[in-house]
Amino acid sequence: MSAIPQPLIELSQIRKVFRTSHGALTAVDSIDLIVERGSTIGLVGESGSGKSTVARMLLRLLTPTSGSIRILGEDVTGWSDKKLKPVRSMLQWVSQHPAAALFPNLTVGQNIMEPMRIHGIGMAQERQRKARGLLAKVGIPQEGFHAFPHELSGGQQQRVVIARALSVDPGCVVLDEAVSSLDVSVQAQILNLLQDLQEEMNLSYLFISHNLAVIRLVCDEVAVMFLGRVVESGKTREVFDHPLHPYTKKLLAAVPSFTPDGGVTQLDESSLLQGDPPSPLNIPSGCAFRSRCPYARERCAQERPLLRRVGTQDVACHFAEEIAAE
């Protein structure tokens, strides 16, 4: 440990360009992200906005085209899989479809022990004890130890995935749409579980979701992504209560909220996002959001707004102050 406490993970100016048969596709463009120990960072945005690409780069499943990834201050950007191996136990991944993520031919117990096997942690007996402990921790009865994944429900499967992720004592867990495929009631249980585990194990989460309600519930900080860029970031409460980017505003407006009498508020049609986002293969000049932005003016077509500090948030809009003043 260095004298100055390092953030657990630090992404700076990372960029990812995919070469496709239709030309270069900039999936992620110059993003900075810091994950501190014990904190929960949210990434939110429409599908195709580059959230998962960021997650995969963070997990080093993808190598960034440019920029750097530091883990505990160490630049791991160019490291080989072999070199990365010890680092990887720090970072664990929980994906959207637990059924696909679990090894179909291994039992629940074996699934949980697999990362320990990979990292050569402990003897067989220790691994089993730990796996059983984790199983209990995620709320699955011990009979489940010898079950096969397909015999469990979706929620249970996701609990197993989480238990598996925790088996190597990671510092950070990337939760990529981790609850999106589950029933709402199950979502709540899993989210509670995640919060309990965070407190107990001092975990940090990178929480990726398109579900604003979930983000609001669990995240300390949030970054809103649009077409590969962060358009707004800050404390969750600030961003949600006082959005400074027109896109964030639109997103929030699209969330129905409950009225005290149990009804649902009417959505204001005019405030909803119209049309599809532009193709990432052909990002417009200036501000990418301008084609759908009610505030768009001449300047937006010519000058790309950079992320800048406005009040409590970072925001990439020429007219953030104007919006803040509303």
Partner: peptide, 15 residues
């Protein structure tokens, strides 16, 4: 291409 294969890599397993 399935998640469980990616998981192995993500967990530090080799190809």
């Amino acid at each position: 291409n399935k998640d469980y294969a990616t998981t192995v890599i993500a967990k530090g397993g080799s190809k």
